Amino acid sequence: MSADMPIPLCSMDELKAGAFADLAQAFDDTALARTLAQATRACETEVGRRLAPFIGLTESHRLDGVDPDEYGASTNLPLDLAGSLGRSRGLSLSTGGDLVRHLWLHQSAPHYPDLWSYTNVQVTLTRSYGGSQVLGIDQFDGPEPDTGHLWFRLGTWAPLGSFARVVYSGGYHTVPADLERACKYMAAAILCRELAPLGGGQQHDASELEQQAVAWLSPYMRAD
């Protein structure tokens, strides 16, 4: 079984510096790297969202809801090259109904979207009556870092009830300073608990460190 080793939110040098140097010196670099990976995942679990850079995350969505304030497929919007015929885009695609235009990815930046990036976004649509399609990059805009909003361009054949599978990479390419601090406290709490059975007498309180980590993470917690 392969180990889960995300890119840590806190560097090993940062963990070794300052007040927690006494904790770090009791462990070799391999153990510290593993602890930082565990602390990173603990931070993500606490807030209910991905924070560290990730690769190839898969999400599934059922497409529903058509915004009444914008053009759907059956609003008789003329075709670009055949507007004089009075045909709608929906009729030209033979969908028989409205097309969904929006999708929101689960993972986005709750703060500092300028430090977040998406890469390698792939969207596959499977329609309820059969048939599937891999969308080209010219068929959607986004996702937007601050909301995860992915916007299907007008004419994309995405009827209500279609199934969308999105595979993408993302995360903070630059770690916000407060997330680094939270991860440092979380790692220190883990190290405290590792050392406690070996004789006690530690100057750091693991529970207090964890509470401080959670306090630093609270602005990033998912509200929905």
Rank of each mutant, 00 (worst) to 15 (best):
W216A: 13
L85A: 15
L195D: 02
N120V: 08
Y185S: 01
G65T: 08
W151R: 15
F152Q: 07
V100D: 07
G199L: 08
E70P: 00
Q139M: 15
T147M: 03
E59H: 09
S162R: 02
S92G: 00
G136A: 06
E46Q: 10
S218A: 11
G161N: 09
A206Q: 09
D80K: 15
P159N: 04
P53H: 00
T174P: 04
S60H: 14
P53G: 00
R127G: 13
E59R: 08
D13C: 11
A223H: 04
V123S: 06
W151N: 14
A33L: 08
C192M: 08
G171I: 00
K184Q: 10
R49K: 05
V166A: 12
H173W: 14
W116L: 04
V134T: 11
A213Y: 00
G97W: 08
R34W: 08
G171H: 05
L9P: 07
G130E: 01
K184Y: 10
Y185W: 01
T75Q: 13
G83W: 05
L81V: 14
I190R: 02
L36F: 00
G86H: 09
L91R: 15
M186I: 05
D22G: 15
Q122G: 13
R50P: 01
V214T: 00
A215F: 02
Q25E: 14
P113K: 02
Y220H: 04
A26Y: 06
L105V: 04
L191C: 07
V66Q: 07
Y118N: 05
D28W: 09
Y172M: 05
G199W: 08
P8C: 07
I7N: 05
D67F: 11
D141F: 06
S128Q: 13
G18D: 05
Q211R: 12
D80I: 06
R87A: 15
E194Y: 13
T30A: 15
I55P: 05
V166C: 12
P219C: 09
L105P: 06
G83R: 02
S162Q: 07
T156K: 03
D69M: 14
F163A: 14
G86L: 11
M221L: 10
A31S: 09
N120C: 12
D13F: 14
S94I: 10
C192Y: 03
S218H: 08
Q139Y: 12
R181H: 03
M5E: 02
D114W: 02
M186V: 01
F27R: 04
A39Q: 06
R181G: 02
